[in-house]
């Protein structure tokens, strides 16, 4: 197996449950135990009430493309992305009300549209990390 050479997230005490869930094919986000606020990206406290009591909840993995760009040139990231050009980097708004950056895959970049319904699909990068990506939702 050839090594995966693109940047990968770091597994920390905070994010271990997230990456373990991704391995199982589940997308989880943070929810505040005190005020029930949900947030992404994962943090050490709640951006709504500052409580450090956060839990992970499983989400549907369904959402919409809020905006996107088609990468035409690699600047400021791993040259490994060169072989993927052109590819789509998007802001995905999940049904649960949080926004993630990810890729829209399984579709020609020119066919991606704002508002398009998408669902999560996991790309297995290493034995530890599977990245949540998004593909057009089945209708």
């Amino acid at each position: 197996m050839t090594g995966y050479a693109k940047p990968l997230p770091e597994i920390t005490d905070l994010t271990k449950p997230l990456w373990e869930a991704s391995k199982r094919g589940e997308l989880v986000i943070q929810k505040c135990k005190k005020c029930s606020h949900m947030q992404w990206y994962p943090r050490h406290s709640c951006v709504n009430c500052a409580s450090r009591e956060m839990e992970w909840i499983k989400v549907s993995g369904k959402g919409r493309v809020y905006s996107f760009t088609i990468a035409r040139q690699v600047i400021g990231n791993s040259p490994e992305f060169q072989k993927d050009i052109p590819f789509v980097v998007a802001e995905i708004d999940l049904e649960e009300g949080v926004r993630l950056y990810s890729n829209v895959v399984g579709v020609n970049p020119d066919d991606v549209k704002i508002g398009m319904q998408v669902e999560v699909t996991f790309e297995e990068c290493t034995p530890e990390i599977s990245l949540p990506k998004f593909k057009p939702a089945k209708t």
């Binding site: 770091e10 994962p42 980097v89 802001e91 950056y101 990506k133």
Partner: peptide
């Protein structure tokens, strides 16, 4: 580092393009 770059974001260019 964890929630953008692994997806191939290219710093501010990607964010502003969106």
């Amino acid at each position: 580092e964890d929630y953008m770059k692994p997806f191939g974001t290219m710093g501010p260019n990607s964010m502003i393009a969106m």
